[in-house]
């Protein structure tokens, strides 16, 4: 097991180097420099600044310098915010995004799974149709519509939670709910389909023939076997949710990383673009590793061969 994880970590590192290389050259193909928008500076002044940041060097030299810095964990200094380290900026901004994403993911997955389970157990009944209806709504209506509705009805009319901004846990409730609609829909749909298939399988009949009751059949025999596809789709969704969502963060004025990322692209803030991309990639690869380990936990057939001996 330890050997497997070490191997995976080495692959992760290789993947990150490849991603860093690609994003670096892609980014350099973007038109303009960080100073394109700065009209007040003369050409000479711009030259001095570009020289200072090494932006006049040939691209391969810049690349080697950047990778050199990366090797010792230095992501560089932001162009937008004077003298602030990229690492600092990311760490500053990632907190709220991660928190919202994690909350939405956990709540969404739990509610979605329950909806899917109920739908599968009462297949073709009223509860099935209701749950499918919720799932369709959650999947087809964009989150910013929910955000607006929640702000208007729950925050403005009822006054239960603050409309926007960041601070106490109350501030996180509405954006979490708005974000959770999508994972609810996805989890409900996958759980329903998988559960229906599992409940139709032979071993469920074996369990019933043993005298196991409906509850035991669903929870002891069914759920675990229905989890693999769910985990597969929830992984990338987790990354998407936890790395910040521009729209929700804008609507609820959350100081998250989503907005930061977009601004950095429009202003050619190279170190921030690179830093954020690499951070997201790392997170994504990490989640994939977690999912692979989860597979083994859920399904003994996927467990590593060496563990068997």
């Amino acid at each position: 097991m330890a050997r497997y994880i070490t191997k995976r970590l080495i692959y992760m590192l290789l993947t990150l180097i490849i991603i860093a290389t690609f994003s670096f050259f892609l980014m350099k193909m973007l038109p303009g420099t960080p100073l394109t928008m700065e009209d007040k500076l003369s050409e000479a002044q711009k030259e001095i600044i570009l020289e200072k940041y090494g932006l006049n060097d040939p691209v391969p030299i810049q690349y080697l310098k950047y990778m050199g810095g990366l090797a010792v964990g230095d992501l560089g200094i932001s162009f937008q915010f004077d003298n602030r380290e990229v690492t600092d900026i990311i760490m500053d901004r990632i907190g709220p995004s991660m928190q919202l994403g994690a909350q939405a993911l956990i709540i969404g997955t739990i509610i979605g799974m329950l909806l899917g389970l109920v739908a599968a157990i009462y297949h073709n009944g009223f509860l099935d149709y209701s749950s499918t209806f919720v799932a369709v709504i959650g999947k087809s209506i964009p989150s910013f519509i929910f955000a607006g509705l929640l702000q208007y009805f729950i925050a403005l009319k009822l006054g239960w939670f603050p409309v926007a901004l960041w601070g106490t846990w109350q501030h996180t409730v509405l954006p979490t709910v708005a974000l959770a609609m999508f994972p609810i829909a996805i989890a409900a749909r996958f759980m329903r389909t998988e559960m229906l298939e599992v409940l139709g399988s032979d071993f469920i009949q074996t369990a019933r023939a043993k005298g196991v009751n409906k509850f035991g059949v669903v929870f002891k025999h069914g759920v675990r076997n229905a989890l693999i596809p769910l985990v597969t789709v929830m992984g990338p969704l987790a990354v998407a949710l936890m790395t910040g969502t521009l729209v929700i963060e804008k609507i609820f004025a959350v100081p998250g990383i989503g907005e930061q990322f977009v601004t950095s692209i429009t202003t050619n803030d190279f170190p921030i673009i690179m830093g954020t991309t690499l951070f997201f990639s790392f997170f994504f690869i990490f989640i994939i590793l977690v999912i692979d380990l989860l597979y083994g936990l859920i399904d003994p057939r996927i467990r590593l061969a060496e563990g068997e001996k």
């Binding site: 032979d202 071993f203 009949q205 675990r224 003994p300």
Partner: peptide, 12 residues
């Protein structure tokens, strides 16, 4: 049951 390959719960 007929098919021993499918009539046991694979995760138990």
């Amino acid at each position: 049951f007929q098919d021993p390959m499918t009539s046991l719960n694979p995760t138990m």
